[in-house]
C-alpha cells in the first residue's frame, strides 16, 4: 500500500466541483472538498444537504456527472470503491457499517480482506486504540452498544492501514462522553499521519478539532475555512450552530 509521496503543492485528497445524484436530479451542485495529509476535514450542514452523498461521491459509490477526484496527485475519478480501498482510502458509512452477526474480530479481519500479509500487528493497534472493543472481540458485533459499534466500524476501516479515512457521522447516536472519547481517538489517528474526512452532526465539537471545515448546503459549499474561523464566524454560528 505504499503510495507515491504527495506533492507538497497539492492537497492529499482533492474532490473538485462534483456534480451528480442518484437518479436524474443532481444532489451535488459543484461541491469541492480537499484534505491535506494528516489533517482533519469536517463537513457540516443541515439534514439532507448532501453530506453523505458527497462522501459516497468521493468514494466512487456514485457516478459523477462532472468534477474529478484526485488522491495523492493521482486521478481516481474512474475507479471503483474497491479499487479506491486498494489505493489507500477507508470509508465508514453512516449506517449499516458493521457485519452484525460476525464477531468483532471477524469484522476487523474482513476490513483487512484485501491484505495478503500478516494483519496481526494492525489488529493489535486497533485494539490498543479501542480497548473497549478489544474486550468484546469474540462477541457478535450486532450485540454491542451503539458507541462500541461505531468503534468497530472505524476499526474495520483502519484495518487496511488507509492513508485517508472517511467517516460519515461516526458519533451518531452515542452519548456525549463516548463522543468526546471517539473524537480523541480520531485525533490520535490523525496524528499518525492519516488524513481524515468526516461528516458530523455535532458541528460545534467537530469544528473544534477540524483543521478545515466545510459547511454544505443543498449540495454546494456555503462556507469553507479553518474550523476555528468557522466557529468564530457569527453568520455560521447563527445559522448552523444554533447561536
Amino acid at each position: 500500500m505504499i503510495q507515491s509521496q504527495p506533492q507538497t503543492t497539492q492537497p492529499f485528497l482533492s474532490a473538485q466541483a462534483m456534480r451528480g445524484g442518484y437518479g436524474k436530479a443532481d444532489i451535488l451542485h459543484g461541491c469541492t472538498l480537499t484534505v491535506d495529509q494528516g489533517q482533519i476535514a469536517v463537513i457540516v450542514g443541515p439534514n439532507g444537504a448532501g453530506k453523505s452523498t458527497a462522501m459516497k461521491a468521493v468514494f466512487g459509490m456514485l457516478p459523477l456527472r462532472e468534477g474529478r477526484v484526485t488522491l495523492g496527485g493521482q486521478d481516481i475519478t474512474a475507479l471503483s470503491p474497491q479499487e479506491r480501498v486498494r489505493k489507500g482510502m477507508g470509508f465508514v458509512p453512516q449506517t449499516h457499517n458493521i457485519f452484525p452477526t460476525m464477531t468483532v474480530e471477524e469484522n476487523l479481519e474482513m476490513g483487512a480482506y484485501i491484505r495478503d500479509d500478516d494483519v496481526r500487528q494492525t489488529l493489535a493497534q486497533v485494539y490498543d486504540l479501542f480497548p473497549a472493543v478489544a474486550e468484546k472481540r469474540r462477541q457478535a458485533a450486532g450485540e454491542l452498544s451503539g458507541g462500541q459499534r461505531q468503534q468497530v466500524a472505524v476499526g474495520r476501516a483502519l484495518m487496511t492501514r488507509p492513508q485517508l479515512l472517511m467517516l460519515d457521522e461516526p458519533t451518531a447516536g452515542v452519548s456525549p462522553i463516548v463522543m468526546d472519547e471517539l473524537f480523541d481517538r480520531i485525533i490520535e489517528v490523525a496524528r499518525t499521519g492519516i488524513s481524515i474526512l468526516m461528516v458530523e452532526q455535532n458541528a460545534r465539537q467537530a469544528l473544534e478539532i477540524a483543521d478545515i471545515g466545510y459547511v454544505l448546503v443543498q449540495g454546494a459549499n456555503r462556507y469553507t475555512d479553518t474550523g476555528e474561523a468557522l466557529l468564530a464566524d457569527p453568520e455560521v454560528r447563527r445559522t448552523f450552530l444554533g447561536g
Partner: peptide, 12 residues
C-alpha cells in the same frame, strides 16, 4: 450480513 460493506471491504 451486509452486502454494501462487503463491497467496501474489497470482497468480490
Amino acid at each position: 450480513d451486509n452486502e454494501d460493506l462487503a463491497l467496501l471491504s474489497g470482497i468480490d
